[in-house]
Design a protein around this nucleic acid. Structure first.
Length: 269
DNA sequence: CATATGTCCTGAGAGC
DNA sequence: TGCTCTCAGGACATAT
């Protein structure tokens, strides 16, 4: 999503509007009048990412934080539908505005000053990023926990950027059972989890994400991803494991979230 | 402090 | 066919 938005770096914001929407409004902070006053005329100097959020850095040093959650999209293309368009950011000299579209409306858009950013998205709130931390940092972040590894991988305060789908995929390739307790993992197992964390995320980025059955995820140009065709366990309950070719994929629930795994490839030991 | 649970939202799909 | 019900999961507030 972030990479697809890079073409708007250098653009000047001309206006911001909240298109009329029959659905319940999402969180936009501050309210639109103040939001507009602080962004119109500013230049987009960078598009960054912190954990799962898109960070649009402005020449004022303020940042627009897009938090898409499951169904939110940040687009520089026509959205998937006319409904559920939540915010439009017009750019000088650009045909296409920057859009925030969110079918379920659990996402948000926030304009943060550097001081607000430091508090709300500081290291207390967002842990080291999954794409850049070392195996030692991963073990340091989660190794002392008594929780099961799979829910621990989703704790954004300790490790940023891993979602439910990818947690299952990573553990399958690492050969680690999702119910394995963090404090009972060996250093070799942490190294394998770290290795597959990078591998899965980099591959998923290469394929532009996973567009599941409901068709929600699209890249910044409103194109489908392709990684769903490479899933080894996610949403494959009852199907044959692609790794061992023997066992079938099982589904369990951990802290209210689905987990998929192969009972043969992923040992509890 | 460390974890777990309830909540928000909409539309797809299941089951009748 | 059309209705109701369940479920999907990311982050945060609240509970244990």
């Amino acid at each position: 999503m972030r990479r697809g938005l890079l073409p708007v770096v250098g653009a000047v914001i001309a206006d911001v509007a909240r298109p009329p929407c029959a659905c319940r409004p999402i969180t936009i902070e501050p309210e639109l009048t103040a939001f507009r006053r602080r962004v119109v005329g500013r230049t987009i100097v960078a598009i960054d990412r912190i954990g799962k959020r898109v960070v649009v850095r402005l020449s004022s040093n303020d940042c627009i934080i897009f938090e898409p959650r499951m169904t939110g999209l940040v687009l520089i293309a026509d959205p998937p539908g006319a409904e559920h368009l939540r915010l439009r950011v017009d750019l000088e000299g650009f045909e296409q505005p920057l859009l925030f579209w969110d079918r379920r409306g659990l996402g948000s858009v926030r304009l943060l000053s550097p001081a607000e950013y430091a508090v709300r998205l500081g290291p207390e709130k967002i842990g080291p990023d999954a794409l850049t931390l070392t195996a030692e940092q991963l073990q340091q972040a989660l190794g002392g926990s008594q929780r099961e590894i799979k829910p621990a991988l989703l704790d954004q305060k300790r490790l940023a950027g891993v979602g439910n789908l990818y947690a299952s995929e990573v553990l399958h390739l690492a050969g680690v059972h999702p119910q394995k307790r963090c404090d009972r993992m060996t250093t070799a197992q942490w190294r394998r989890v770290h290795e597959q964390l990078l591998h899965v995320l980099e591959e998923a980025i290469l394929y532009e994400g996973s567009t599941l059955g409901d068709g929600t995820y699209r890249n910044a140009l409103n194109q489908s991803g392709g990684y769903q065709n490479h899933h080894r366990v996610y949403d494959r309950e009852g199907d044959l494991c692609r790794r061992c070719g023997q066992a079938t994929i099982e589904r369990i629930v951990q802290t209210q979230r689905s987990t998929f795994f192969c009972p043969a490839c992923q040992t509890k030991r």
